[in-house]
């Protein structure tokens, strides 16, 4: 750490002495994050993709499930179809945008599910400690050893290919790591000196939790969230690819890639465009995640 971070406001101190509000941990992290060019590029691209998924389908003149039997396998740019059409004449751009929306939706929803379960479970185990902690973490250990991809597939088979079940099934297997991270963090925070100081100063238990423990949990959790979303998107696409995910006519990037792979000898664009969107999406998440980790946890650099 440089002197200027140890003594807040020192660098530009002469100009505005009364504005030495001090730079918080988060200001520092934000500054580091925005200095990381890859992470900034990732955020920009992700922003564009989210925007495209949100409003794009309304701007494309074709509906994603509009079948035109006469316009089968049109090449990109033919008769107004920017990215061509598929094997039953549906506009690829409209389908990709809807697929993007579904993939992002699954990614974010399932991550929130795993976040809620993971934080509640991990924080409980960490706070209570002792026997309860031991028992709860043993359960996590047992579940960890499950070949979870198989487990998700069996879940999908058992409850049918409902899109909300995909959210739940994926969220239900992704919370384990979150629970471990939160528990470890809670235990180390409980013994931190600043918590002891707050206690000595007469702060209430709830005050300590909300003022000191939760904000310090957020960093690692945020990093893990940005790395979980692409994992979930991958898992959903993987399920769709092997024929157990989102059902037609609704689509996801994985379903589109699967259809593209089956038709690639006739129409390469059916494979290449969804694959490109998928890779760009995953890369932007990974760059943001890596950048966030470096920004929040600078000791790893």
């Amino acid at each position: 750490m440089t002197a200027s971070t140890l003594i807040p406001g020192m660098r530009d101190g002469s100009k505005d002495m009364q504005a030495v509000a001090g730079r918080s941990l988060w200001d520092d992290a934000r500054r580091r994050l925005f200095r990381n060019r890859l992470a900034v590029a990732g955020m920009a691209v992700l922003g564009l993709l989210v925007l495209a998924a949100a409003i794009g389908p309304f701007l494309v003149p074709f509906a994603f499930d509009e079948v035109t039997k006469t316009d089968v396998y049109l090449r990109p740019l033919q008769s107004g179809h920017l990215l061509g059409t598929d094997y039953i004449g549906r506009d690829m751009l409209a389908r990709i945008l809807v697929g993007l929306r579904v993939s992002l939706g699954v990614g974010i929803t399932a991550t929130i599910v795993s976040l809620v379960i993971g934080i509640a479970y991990g924080a409980t185990a960490g706070f209570i400690g002792g026997r309860v902690d031991e028992g709860m973490m043993r359960i996590v250990d047992v579940l960890y050893a499950l070949p979870f991809v198989f487990f998700v597939i069996v879940l999908m088979v058992a409850f049918g290919r409902n899109i909300f079940l995909i959210f739940l099934a994926i969220g239900a297997v992704e919370w384990l790591t979150m629970a471990r991270i939160v528990r470890g963090q809670t235990i180390s925070l409980k013994q931190a000196e600043f918590v002891e100081a707050a206690r000595a100063a007469g702060m209430s238990g709830a005050g300590i939790v909300f003022r000191h423990i939760v904000p310090n949990l957020l960093g690692p959790v945020a990093v893990y969230v940005t790395l979980t979303i692409p994992q979930v998107i991958l898992l959903e696409s993987f399920l769709s690819f092997i024929g157990m995910g989102v059902q037609e006519p609704l689509t996801s990037l994985g379903t589109l890639i699967s259809i593209g792979a089956n038709n690639m000898e006739l129409a390469t664009w059916l494979l290449i465009w969804p694959a490109l969107f998928m890779v760009v999406l995953l890369m932007s998440f990974n760059f943001i995640g890596d950048g966030l980790r470096d920004a929040i946890d600078p000791k790893d650099r």
Binding site: F238, F241, I257, M264, A275, M278, V279, N286
Partner: peptide, 15 residues
């Protein structure tokens, strides 16, 4: 390698 999943690399390489 991390961002391009196997179900993308496999059909692309076959292609």
């Amino acid at each position: 390698g991390i961002c391009i999943p196997t179900f993308v690399t496999a059909p692309l390489l076959v292609l």
